[in-house]
C-alpha cells in the first residue's frame, strides 16, 4: 500500500518497466519521492525500497551517495552556485557570497519559511558562461553579484510556479556557454530536476 498519489504510482510503474531489472529504477524513483514529499524522507526511502525490492538501508546507501537527493527539508527554490575552477576564476565565490548575504541563508541551509535553500556546488557544465548558478537545476549563465542579489529578491517576490531558465537568463544572466538559440517554456516545480518522465515539469512548450 503506497502513500504516493495515484499518478506517481502510475509513473513508478512506467519507469520500472523501462529497465531490465527493477533495482535500476531506484534513482528515478527517488526523484518521484522528492516530488511527493519535497525532499527524500525516511518514508520515501522505505517506499522506494518496496517498489524496487531492496532494503531501506540499501536505498539510503544510494540516496546518500548523490548530492541531488536532499535528505533534509529543502526550499521551494534551491539556488546552487558553482564555485568550481572556471566559475571561481571569474568570480563564482563572489556570486555565492552575494546570494548567501542577500538571502541570509548560508551554504547547505534553508530559510525558515522553506522558500530558499542555498548551496555551492561543483562544476555544473556552464564554464563557458561562468560564473553560473542554477535554481532548481534551471541554469543562469554570466551572473554578476548584483544580478545574483536581484535573483534572490525576485524569487522571494515573484515566487514563480515554474522556474524557467530562459526567463531567468533574460532577467539576470549575460554571456552563455553557447548560443541557447531555442527558447523553452518548460521548467522546474521544486528542488529536483524537471523532467517529463518523472512528472516534475511545469509550464508548457
Amino acid at each position: 500500500m503506497s502513500y504516493w498519489s495515484e499518478s506517481t504510482q502510475q509513473r513508478a510503474k512506467e519507469i520500472i518497466a523501462r529497465y531490465p531489472k527493477k533495482r535500476s529504477a531506484v534513482m528515478p524513483l527517488l526523484y518521484l519521492a522528492m516530488a511527493e514529499d519535497g525532499h527524500v524522507t525516511e518514508e520515501g526511502m522505505e517506499e522506494v525500497g518496496r517498489w524496487v525490492g531492496i532494503s531501506p538501508a540499501q536505498v539510503q546507501a544510494v540516496a546518500s551517495f548523490y548530492t541531488m537527493y536532499k535528505r533534509e527539508r529543502t526550499g521551494r527554490y534551491l539556488i546552487s552556485c558553482c564555485t568550481s575552477i572556471s566559475c571561481m576564476l571569474l568570480g563564482g565565490d563572489d556570486i555565492l557570497h552575494a546570494v548567501e548575504d542577500e538571502s541570509g541563508v548560508p551554504h547547505g541551509e534553508t530559510d525558515p519559511d522553506g522558500l530558499l535553500s542555498v548551496e555551492h556546488v561543483e562544476c555544473i557544465g556552464a564554464c563557458g558562461g561562468a560564473p553560473a548558478v542554477q535554481v532548481d537545476y534551471e541554469l543562469i549563465e554570466g551572473l554578476t553579484p548584483e544580478k545574483a542579489r536581484e535573483l534572490v529578491r525576485w524569487l522571494r517576490k515573484a515566487r514563480p510556479d515554474t522556474v524557467l531558465s530562459d526567463e531567468m537568463q533574460e532577467l539576470f544572466g549575460s554571456r552563455t556557454s553557447f548560443d541557447w538559440a531555442i527558447s523553452e517554456g518548460v521548467g522546474a516545480t521544486g528542488p529536483y530536476p524537471a523532467f517529463e518522465p518523472y512528472g516534475t515539469t511545469g509550464g508548457d512548450e
Binding site: E42, M45, S55, A57, A61, S64
Partner: peptide, 21 residues
C-alpha cells in the same frame, strides 16, 4: 540481511543502518 550499508560518499562515507531499523 542488507541492513547495514555504506552511506554518504568520499571522505564522509560511513557504515550505518537505516534509522530505527
Amino acid at each position: 540481511d542488507p541492513l547495514i550499508e555504506f552511506a554518504d560518499r568520499g571522505n564522509a562515507t560511513n557504515v550505518t543502518t537505516f534509522p530505527d531499523l
